[in-house]
């Protein structure tokens, strides 16, 4: 029988920068980002895909990085919260979160922004219902969600 390795070589683009890394096959994408690349903006809230704090955009789609292995994403393009503000310019969505008090403790905020930005990218003028569907996989214990929904609605209105 063939020998299979517990270490995997991967090549990924994270926020536009290319990385070639060797990773243990049991390392989640979340841990790869946080502990290997030291991109700690993406948070761990539960480790089982229930809370959405670890949401990143993988090949254009929001996913929970705690339920994906780094080994699986060879050849992929990844966007994290660190890549949102370009040249220190906040995105409209980031600005709207601040204006509408969409963040309190801030721990869930990066995940919400990734989910919501991805929604706005595929649907620039979402309804409230579509917004709720897109972010209901992100748990927040501080805000009661309403200010977050309002922030996303504000960006949608601005775009329409």
């Amino acid at each position: 029988m063939k020998e299979y390795s517990k270490i995997v070589d991967i090549r990924v683009k994270v926020n536009g920068a290319e990385y070639r890394e060797s990773v243990p096959a049991n390392m989640t994408l979340l841990h790869f980002l946080r502990e290997h690349l030291m991109l700690t903006g993406t948070k761990e809230g539960c480790g089982i895909g229930e809370c959405g704090a670890c949401t990143i955009v993988l090949n254009g789609k929001p996913v929970t990085s705690c339920t994906i292995l780094a080994a699986e994403v060879d050849g992929s393009e990844i966007h994290t919260i660190e890549g949102e503000a370009k040249n220190y310019q906040l995105t409209d969505l980031q600005q709207a979160f601040i204006e509408h008090h969409g963040e309190q403790c801030g721990f869930c905020t990066p995940g919400f922004i990734m989910s919501a930005q991805s929604l706005l990218d595929r649907n620039p003028n979402p309804s409230r219902e579509e917004i709720v569907e897109a972010v209901s996989g992100n748990l927040c214990r501080c805000t009661g969600y309403e200010p977050i929904i309002e922030a996303i609605e504000a960006v949608a209105r601005k775009k329409s």
């Binding site: 895909g49 959405g52 949401t55 993988l58 789609k61 929001p62 996913v63 929970t64 339920t67 994906i68 989910s115 569907e133 897109a134 209901s136 996989g137």
Partner: peptide, 9 residues
């Protein structure tokens, strides 16, 4: 099933 993020996988 689950959440939008999980359904992408």
């Amino acid at each position: 099933v689950a959440t939008y993020q999980l359904r992408n996988r």
